[in-house]
């Protein structure tokens, strides 16, 4: 494993810690999109089917279980926790998931490595992960007040994707020497979606102002 990949995974873990910190200590999920969090549950469940079918390193098993477990936990908090669920920005979180799920599934039916359940769902999970942040970005745009932890959470998610891109560049030259269209294109699109957010996040940080996205 190269340094970019390791840093990417650690940043992804940090994202989850930041979000759980907000939920558990502040008892708030204000500004967090339940739609995006539910999409992540679907992404992890469909991608990690191989937990049961092929050999994984201990690192992979632990990380996969952490991602599945925490994503379900976060959705549980947002939907059912007595206090937390009342802070959910329900009226602003209006993006319809199935507008994302359905096209990604159809795309996976046509674009995959092998026409098997595991391969189609693997492709589906990559396509869905690429666009899963959209409901969150829309919610941020509608929020008057973006608190620091929410801004940091989305920023770190973007950083994790940038590190994965660097990891692929490294792996292409050092290990693989082959083109991997499905993860690369979806990963690139996923990262590009953060460009606008990055711009405003860094600007607000430089000017020491509160983060606000133009509507």
């Amino acid at each position: 494993m190269n340094l970019f990949r390791l840093l990417g995974d650690m940043t992804h873990l940090l994202c989850i810690v930041v979000l759980l910190l907000k939920i558990r200590t502040r008892k708030s999920c204000a500004g967090i999109s339940l739609k995006t969090q539910e999409l992540y549950v679907i992404v992890f469940l469909t991608r990690y089917l191989d937990l049961f079918t092929m050999y994984n390193s201990l690192y992979q098993i632990v990380m996969k279980l952490v991602f599945v477990g925490t994503s379900i936990g976060i959705v549980w908090y947002m939907r059912y926790h007595k206090v937390v669920k009342q802070t959910y920005s329900k009226n602003e979180d209006t993006f319809r998931h199935y507008f994302l799920i359905l096209p990604c599934f159809v795309l996976a039916l046509f674009v995959h490595l092998d026409f098997t359940v595991v391969e189609v769902l693997w492709s589906f999970s990559l396509y869905l992960e690429a666009v899963a942040i959209l409901p969150q970005l829309v919610l941020l745009q509608r929020s008057r007040n973006i608190d620091t932890l929410t801004g940091d959470y989305v920023f770190l998610l973007g950083v994790y994707r940038v590190l994965y891109l660097l990891n692929w560049v490294y792996r292409f030259f050092m290990e693989i020497h082959q083109i991997r269209w499905i993860p690369w294109v979806s990963g690139f699109i996923q990262t590009a979606l953060y460009a606008d957010f990055f711009y405003y996040y860094i600007k607000s940080w430089k000017n020491r102002e509160k983060l606000k996205l133009p509507a």
């Binding site: 992804h12 992979q60 991602f67 490595l113 994965y164 290990e175 693989i176 082959q178 991997r180 993860p183």
Partner: peptide, 10 residues
């Protein structure tokens, strides 16, 4: 192989 398909990634 699974590695070349980047299946070893998360």
């Amino acid at each position: 192989s699974s590695t070349s398909d980047l299946k070893d990634e998360l």
